[in-house]
Design a protein around this nucleic acid. Sequence first.
DNA 1: ATCTACATCAATACTATTTCTTGATATAGT
DNA 2: ACTATATCAAGAAATAGTATTGATGTAGAT
Lengths: 203, 203
Amino acid sequence: MNRDDLLLKQIQPLLDYFDQLIPLNIDEKLLVTELFKPRLYRKRQYVLQEGDICNQFNFIVRGCLRMYKVDDKGDIHIIQFAAENWWLSNIGSFHDRKPSDLNIDALEDTMVLQISHENLLSLYTKAPKFDRIFRVLIEKSFVSLQQRLLQNISSTAEERYLTFQQTYTELSTRLPQTQIASFLGITPEFLSRLRNKQVKRKS
Amino acid sequence: MNRDDLLLKQIQPLLDYFDQLIPLNIDEKLLVTELFKPRLYRKRQYVLQEGDICNQFNFIVRGCLRMYKVDDKGDIHIIQFAAENWWLSNIGSFHDRKPSDLNIDALEDTMVLQISHENLLSLYTKAPKFDRIFRVLIEKSFVSLQQRLLQNISSTAEERYLTFQQTYTELSTRLPQTQIASFLGITPEFLSRLRNKQVKRKS
DNA sequence: ATCTACATCAATACTATTTCTTGATATAGT
DNA sequence: ACTATATCAAGAAATAGTATTGATGTAGAT
């Protein structure tokens, strides 16, 4: 397999993703292949560190990232997980070119396809279809964020955990409970007790 | 503690380091505080990746970095370790602004203070004393590099290991043997046998 | 005032990952 | 042939990460 084939194989999941939203023509596919770069992050590695400007828009090919805020007490609050075929970046920092107050790091070894701010602008210019694609994609993220907020203001931890299990079935078994707890906004101990209750109820 | 105090506390080890070489006046200290940025790298995280231009000069506050070359076979050869109060960067790449053929990554969670190429030039211009400081500091690195080379062309693996133990007593217990082996240019297995021999000889 | 939904702390248990050791066998240079 | 070293594979040991449990505490709702 030569260099081009390898690159194509790495980019394929992203092309598939776009194609499913809105079919691409060959020129658009070529553009994507040019402008997105594959990159491997290893477990625990930072993708974005507080204080830096978020310069990449990330599409996850495999693995899992988390975006979180560290509060004054030093506690971590996970805003979002992103696994296969999800997008993640600090959109605020990315668009306004201002230092990020959030961190992104890898919960597993993670392969992403990333496009820089500059290249994304150039993509929009050269192929306006991507304006639409990225609008759709951000709307999707927006909706799931809204649901999460709603959940948070209206439900107990137990209900939130249940919803999490239903919405992200795979993640709920794949990720360490500590991470899920931090996502739900409870302590790992309490989550452990909730799960215990679940198990007992079933038997 | 407010933001400025925090920053000052983080920068202090570097100010102390400079002060010990050549005392700084208040303006110079202020410059250092402005131009060096603290940054945390996590274990295994890249500080510099082959192909990128080395844009930072790093002072290690705590933790440990390694700089290494990956050869055609994919084997790793460690050129330098750098722990507390040492400097590390790919000077060739840094000065000539050309892609690095070496990698730097973190063996432990590591806090560095780093100055960008641009800011270092500006530091030299604004406070020429730093020309002297950085000359001295590079001379020190140069000397230890020379000694290492001499060792390598003139000694057996066993002798090299002994010298390593004497020169970097702490590192020789702190770092995994795999890393030390790669630094000495032998296999971890062989290092294990050398150590075994040492232990037996003592008893 | 007490009940519910959570938190905190500490100890322990469990699991996975990393690191080290050992034996067997091979090779290149003196 | 001997010495210094490598390679490969298996297993042991050490460390780090994750989960569970008990005891105790607290704020807000009823």
